[in-house]
Design a protein around this nucleic acid. Structure first.
Length: 893
RNA sequence: GGUCGCAUAGCUCAGCUGGUUAGAGCGCCUGCCUCACAUGCAGGAGGUCCCUGGUUCGAGUCCAGGUGCGACCACCA
């Protein structure tokens, strides 16, 4: 069955993915004794749909996983999804809103039920899309952070940390989203510079002896002021410390205190202190024993404490207050001011510092071992500079607020007794309090990241002691973006070390962010989002994956250029057509199974034709380079080497050389046929981690011994081929042929010689051995360069009135008589001589420098000397030719 | 305010431990529908490697400073 002329990815992709699943090829077995390789997927949110970040992240993981699986590892890749507390709750709440209702009306149980239903119907979208990408996860181990098993792990961790005093409950100032009506961790607040105002207010001293001026960006919080602070050494105010001021609007009397937190240079040097609405003020208030008065409620509406402003929204209260103060002369002046306004990372509502009772993880004792593990190399970041980011955060880490006032998530396993105010923290729901009172469970749920922090071991069955855990923990590598180093990587480190006694992963490969072609972050609001599914539809999954891998250079953001994806689509088509060619050579002959090229003996290799030896040598070279690049996460290097080999060595040269052998027929043709199929077969295995679909499709079309096997579990070509020990001679020999062919083609094109017509040529070869080789390899010259008559000259001999070029010690002459004007060749030659002269000058400069000869290593000096000699003789030869041309012209004229 | 990253061809980018003629893709120019492929083939043009110093026999590559982008962290009202 002949293949289509153009590769059609859609015909191929779905079919093979289903086949792989059906044959269970991605399943890993803990009893499989081969070396372990394991990864856990960064679990996408169930609310998500596949974006470029996912596509890159999972493609890189799949390349590693498929490569390791083929390379003889017991490779496990655990997939799954995250329940994504706020995000998911928001989605379902929006649905309810559209239906004209809300979660309060529904009640907690019904609401949670509703979210589960949503998850069952829509939460699998992203998994379907990942499968489309071709990822080779062990789907039998797919997990969800709210699964029974993972929930058990969450409770276990909570209880153990609580029992050790590492989880505590406290009334504290936390970040609060008034729209989501929940606490947020520090990380869940996004700061952005925002234009605002600085309001200068005059607070009168209670004793009537004057006033003190304070500045604030948030005048409405003054209703909760409980002090004014000045610097202890500020001469302007030292007499006032201990006195009191009377708050405008509500008349409360508050003290003036001294604290060196105050910056004397800023504003008036006096600060209003609002412990319940500002983090600095909260700390200062604790130092000075000041009361904290909340003037806003959980919806950021002013409370009764706000007196006349009670019931107003925070911004409305500000407007009224400013107007009133302006009228009453309290407002001294207003000036524009930039501030870093914090917003909720889920809904962008400005967050509010809010005083409330929350659960916290005492983080320092957990952070310390996590820092040590990276310092001593038990976990290694790639690229290494991310360690610095990790350290700087870990070393300045604050206690982690883990309670969320949401309904969707892991309910906090704490129960309170109505009767005796006991708190019970337990793995399973307790029935009654020891005092006989009824128990109420804490209404809050845990931060989503609490459960994702357990992911590397909870997915493997912890807290059970499972075979999977013993086999695959610690995982080999975590592949993720830098945006979640703090959210996720750091937490997994802490939890893994705490509960497994070992790091969760040996290496962390941090990849870049995908941006648009102008380097802008993709976002819906900018309208520059490129949908990976559309890209896959347009160019095919393999082309898309290959493009992502080729883009994934370390330490740089990825700008997604669509024309490059198109380029890799063309590459896939090129491979497809190379396969078509190979298969055409096999038509009408007995299906001799292809023999893996790695099984060739050195003796058999030596007996092959020169072109065959050459392509095998290049294959081995590419294989070694790809293997090394992957081992170092240099994905782009691996991809470009593969591309270079497949297109510019295998297709451009070897296939063309093979045609010559086929035209000759006989045993040579048979041997070439075997090499051709062998190299293609090997190339498909080499390609498979990058482009799983096309490689399988082609591989299956080849005549193989094990017809039933899939390329998924075929052996990856070894980094060292047994026969490729000493291929230097072969490569030089074929390299010379290629050089001569290129020189002739160049002359033909530059001189505008007719492309179809065979040209006569003459060659003067310096080295006798090289000449013997070239004479044997003559058929390649004739065909590839379209040379008709070929004459062999003695070294130094030249041809009058010919275009010439010098490559690898071979001077090529193409007689021009009657073909073109000589002037054109003189121009071309002069240019070439200029180039060589420049190179020669560069080398000569080095060699003329005495300290270069003195201090550079001997082999470098020798190398330069050889180069100088080559350039010099090349220049001389070209100049000789130039002279003969000039003579010819003079004679002609 | 602190930390980090990046500046190489018209565009998007490679260039690992300092030593080939600084590379690729796209775009551009010339010529080809050559029996695997026009999603192709052959050839070509195009670069003060951001600036200034320094280290070195030798710097796109290492160091310092500068300029310009970008990112992250941060409780100065």
């Amino acid at each position: 069955m002949p293949l289509d002329k153009v590769y059609d990815p859609h015909r191929v992709e779905r079919r093979w993915y289903d086949e792989w699943l059906q044959r269970d090829l991605f399943r890993a077995d803990p009893d499989d004794p081969r070396p372990a390789f394991s990864m856990v997927i960064p679990p996408p949110n169930i609310t998500g749909s596949l974006h470029m970040g996912h596509a890159l992240n999972n493609t890189l993981q799949d390349v590693l996983c498929r490569w390791k699986r083929m390379s003889g590892c017991n490779a496990l890749w655990v997939p799954g999804t995250d329940h994504a507390g706020i995000a998911t709750q928001n989605v379902v709440e929006r649905q309810l809103q559209a239906e004209g209702t809300n979660r309060q009306a529904l009640g907690r149980e019904a609401f949670v039920d509703r979210v589960w239903r949503w998850r069952d119907s829509s939460g699998g979208t992203i998994i379907m899309q990942l499968k489309r990408l071709g990822v080779s996860c062990d789907w039998s181990r797919e997990r969800f952070t709210m699964d029974e098993g993972l929930s058990r792990a969450v409770r276990e961790v909570f209880v153990r940390l609580y029992e050790e005093g590492l989880i505590y409950r406290d009334r504290y100032l936390i970040n609060w989203c008034p729209r989501c009506r929940t606490a947020l961790s520090d990380l869940e607040v996004e700061h952005a510079d925002t234009d605002g105002h600085l309001y200068h207010l005059r607070y009168p001293l209670a004793d009537g002896s004057g006033a003190i001026e304070v500045a604030t960006t948030r005048p409405e919080t003054m209703l909760g002021d409980t002090a004014v602070a000045v610097h202890p050494e500020d001469a302007r105010y030292c007499g006032l410390v201990g006195k009191t001021v009377r708050l405008p609007a509500i008349g409360r009397e508050i003290p003036i205190v001294a604290d060196d937190y105050v910056d004397r240079e800023f504003g008036s040097g006096a600060v209003k202190i609002t412990p319940a609405h500002d983090f600095n003020d909260f700390a200062l208030g604790r130092r000075h024993g000041l009361p904290a008065i909340s003037v806003m409620d959980e919806g950021a509406v002013m409370t009764a404490e706000a007196g006349p402003y009670a019931g107003l929204d925070r911004y409305e209260a500000r407007k009224r207050l400013v107007a009133d103060f302006e009228r009453d002369g309290v407002l001294v002046r207003t000036e524009p001011h930039k501030l870093a306004l914090g917003r909720c990372y889920r809904c962008q509502t400005p967050v509010e510092p809010y005083l409330s009772l929350q659960w916290f993880v005492k983080i320092a004792p957990l952070a310390e071992p996590a820092i040590a593990a990276v310092r001593d190399g038990r976990t290694r970041f790639v690229p290494a500079h991310w360690e610095k980011t990790y350290f700087s955060w870990m070393e300045n880490i604050h206690d982690w607020c883990i309670s969320r006032q949401l309904w969707w998530g892991h309910r906090i396993p704490a129960w309170y007794c109505d009767a005796c105010s006991t708190t019970i923290v337990a793995r399973e729901e307790p029935t009654t309090c020891s005092c006989g009172g009824t128990l109420r469970q804490d209404p809050d749920v845990l931060d989503t990241w609490f459960s994702s922090g357990l992911w590397p071991f909870s997915t493997l069955g912890w807290p059970e002691d499972t075979a999977a855990l013993r086999r695959w923990y610690p995982t080999s590598v975590l592949v993720t973006g830098f945006d979640i180093i703090f959210f996720w990587v750091a937490r997994m480190m802490m939890m893994g070390l705490k509960f497994m006694g070992d790091v969760p992963f040996r290496e962390v490969y941090i990849h870049a962010l995908v941006r648009d072609q102008h380097g802008q972050k993709m976002s819906k609001s900018k309208g520059n989002v490129v949908d990976p599914l559309v890209v896959m539809d347009t160019y095919g999954t393999d082309a898309f994956r290959f493009a992502l891998v080729a883009f994934a250079a370390m330490g740089r953001d990825i700008k997604l250029a669509e024309d490059r994806i198109e380029g890799y689509r063309n590459f896939m088509n090129k491979i497809w057509n190379a396969a078509r060619f190979v298969l055409m050579q096999l038509e009408d002959r007995p299906a001799e199974p292809v023999r893996p090229v790695e099984e060739l003996t050195a003796q058999a290799y030596a007996g092959l034709g020169i072109a065959d030896q050459w392509i095998l040598a290049r294959l081995a070279d590419a294989g070694a380079a790809i293997d090394e690049a992957l081992a170092q996460y240099r994905f782009n290097d691996a991809a470009s080497r593969l591309y270079e080999f497949a297109w510019h060595e295998f297709c451009d040269w070897y296939i063309e050389m093979a045609k010559i052998a086929f035209a000759a027929g006989g045993d040579t043709a048979e041997a070439t046929r075997r090499t051709l199929v062998g190299v293609l077969e090997c190339l498909m295995r080499m390609l498979h981690p990058f482009a799983p679909f096309i490689s399988e499709e082609i591989w299956q079309a080849l005549p193989r011994a094990a017809r039933g096997a899939s390329i998924v579990t075929a052996p990856y070509p070894p980094a060292r081929m047994p026969w490729a020990e000493d291929t230097g001679m072969v490569e030089a020999r074929v390299g010379r042929v290629i050089g001569v062919v290129r020189a002739v083609r160049n002359i033909r094109a530059e001189m505008n010689l007719p492309p179809g017509r065979a040209l006569d040529a003459a060659l003067a070869v310096e080295d006798p051995a090289a000449r013997r080789d070239l004479e044997i390899d003559q058929p390649m010259l004739h065909t590839l360069a379209r040379i008709g008559g070929l004459r062999w000259l003695a070294p130094g001999e030249s041809v009058r009135g010919a275009a010439t070029a010098l490559v690898d010690g071979v001077q090529v002459f193409v007689p021009l008589a009657g073909l073109v004007d000589v002037d054109e060749e003189i121009r071309r030659l002069t240019k070439e001589i200029g180039k060589v002269a420049g190179e020669l000058a560069g080398v000569a400069r080095k060699l003329d420098n005495p300290s270069f000869r003195e201090r550079a290593p001997a082999e470098v000096v020798e190398e330069q000397e050889q180069k100088a000699a080559t350039f010099a003789s090349k220049k001389a030869a070209l100049e000789r030719s130039l002279r003969t041309l000039e003579e010819a012209r003079a004679a002609g004229a």
